[in-house]
Design a protein around this nucleic acid. Sequence first.
DNA 1: TGGTGGCAGTGGTCTAACCACTCCAGGTTA
DNA 2: TAACCTGGAGTGGTTAGACCACTGCCACCA
Lengths: 269, 269
Amino acid sequence: MRYVHVTMLISLARRNMAMSEPNHNHETHLTMQVVNHIRRLIENGTLRPGDKIPPEREFAQKLKISRASLRAGIGHLAAMGVLNVRHGVGTFVADGPPALGGVSLDILRALHGYTTAQMFEARRILESHLAALAAERGREEHFTALAEEVTEMYATFHEPQEYLIHDMRFHRTIAEASGNPILAVLMETITAALYDERRKTVERSRDLKQSAEVHRELYRAIRSRNAREAREVMERHLHMAESAQVNEQALAKEEKRPAAKKKSARASA
Amino acid sequence: MRYVHVTMLISLARRNMAMSEPNHNHETHLTMQVVNHIRRLIENGTLRPGDKIPPEREFAQKLKISRASLRAGIGHLAAMGVLNVRHGVGTFVADGPPALGGVSLDILRALHGYTTAQMFEARRILESHLAALAAERGREEHFTALAEEVTEMYATFHEPQEYLIHDMRFHRTIAEASGNPILAVLMETITAALYDERRKTVERSRDLKQSAEVHRELYRAIRSRNAREAREVMERHLHMAESAQVNEQALAKEEKRPAAKKKSARASA
DNA sequence: TGGTGGCAGTGGTCTAACCACTCCAGGTTA
DNA sequence: TAACCTGGAGTGGTTAGACCACTGCCACCA
């Protein structure tokens, strides 16, 4: 782990100046300046993944700002997944697997009314390409990992929660095998929300064995480097998955509301 | 604008308890609790896009936490684009056009070494589908907007910066016409980084008229609802765009380093 | 009528102190 | 010797209260 002495500091604009003209939009807020400052340090290589940034008190003093403002900036970057704050240890530049969203489509759906159908459509487009790319570019290690997950799926199709984990890993491995981490991240962003939803209803599923079969078929297409077939199977699989999830949700809804008319009372403080 | 009285507060866990067991990972930090609290309010409809959340002092008091902690949580949500903070006015639930990333691939590239080729590949996959969907689902108003942008492109192909704006708008309109806002957001995330890069080099481009031609072709394919052709033309267009950008960057690099060996000195404070 | 100055409301920043978590060195105990 | 405490140093998390800076609007004045 490199501990970086962030010496050459880009001077932050001063505040508290009595005769300053009105504050404008963009790069005024101190916290944004902190964000940009650290971003620059990362972009130009001064800070690299895994590096530890200086302790807050020290860093704040060097930047000639209060610790609170520094923390606001760090908070921003942490929210975006760029920094990784560990209480009692330090703050580090993210280095693990990337994560684009942070927003989790859950919220976006609440804000903009995204439908499950749209999410599945997006997923279908991304994953079918991912499967094709994986067939073209996948390496032996990927195939091995895929085979293992399929095996696990057969072994756990009577145990939905467990099954779901291997399902997820299978798809993630395909994404990795595609050789395009950007597409992989985009997929992850979408499926995270989808899986999260599915976890609540998967118990009711009765087609997990059939699902395992499809995954096996998918594996064989990829392994034999048949990109066209991989794409098609994936597309078919996801169409099935969509119907399955819709069914499960319908079941869940019925269960919760056993012929009653009221929509379930809302608790208040 | 609804001003919401956030009455029923989900009780936030207490801290500062002398006999508390060690702090664990997830939902401990006060700031995360604030994030989750507000997120819940949005997800269950208590807070809706455009709503104003209570003033910080008041809200903090209601939640029984310090203003600083509340601000940390708000900062997180603001970083993710969920909240919109306006100095001197208030804090609002985002309602404008969504924005997934926030991270801007720029950083991700610095952190994980994404290449421009990968970004173009991702873009190609997304946009070709977007074009096909637009051909299938686009409405008259979209076609009109597309036609206007093409016209503007012809009118400004001698003025690169201006041209680029219409180029961007053209593609954005296609995304809108596709009827899938999720795919649109994903595309926006990628192209934002790409355009940002291109803005620096587009001055050197000498093929803008040809580019306008392709866009016109694309428009005609979409307008005539020929999904297959739309996809193909888009794919071809983006392949061309990629080579063009690579060329421009090569030119730019040569220009900056006129046969000298040094890599340009770096200024220090 | 048309400014325009100022006030009220709200977010932004600062300070200084203290709390809570991690890690590890160094002593204690079995 | 080996396993176990213990406490301190380092670092992020939280609090409190004060003050600064921006926005919008209303009352006053020309």
